[in-house]
Amino acid sequence: MAADHSTTHFQRFDLPQSFDVDAALLDERYRDSQRAVHPDRFVNASDQERRLSMQQATLLNEGYRILKDPLRRGRYLLELQGYRFDDEHHTTSDTVFLMEQMELREALGEVREAGDAFAALGEIMERIDGDLDQLLGELRQQLGSGAAADLQQAADCLTRMQFFRKLQDEAMELEVELEDELA
């Protein structure tokens, strides 16, 4: 028995298809619907119901994961409009952007040599956060109504955000490493 895959994640949580999502409402609907379908509620049910419950709970987890994160949500909205991401080949040719990426990456590599490594890292993280915030604003303008006027432009914006997100992950990993070394 197949669970319904034609339902969008927005419909799943009974939310309007839009880039802006009411986070508190999403949280609440996620919890309430998990309470209804989670496998813990079907431990003594038939195999059939347990299978269905696991499928439904899986879809809710997947939908929640996508909708609560602006990057995944943005990407999902574009996919709903028929845009196909080609992760192998989708890069950007914006040289200014690429230079900045390289510069930030280099700075991350040199954090350990800085007099105050934490201060140096903090500065970089703030820059990344600022850039991400700005791009988020751009993405919101392009996807605000839930339908992008220019799919390619919105996709480019997402690609850049993905670059920054990756840098952010690396910076946070470095922070944990520095703390471990210090301890």
Partner: peptide
């Protein structure tokens, strides 16, 4: 029937 029940329980839970 089982599938309709599960869907209706999600709707009413939400």
């Amino acid at each position: 029937y089982v599938e309709r029940r599960m869907n209706s329980s999600i709707r009413s839970a939400m």
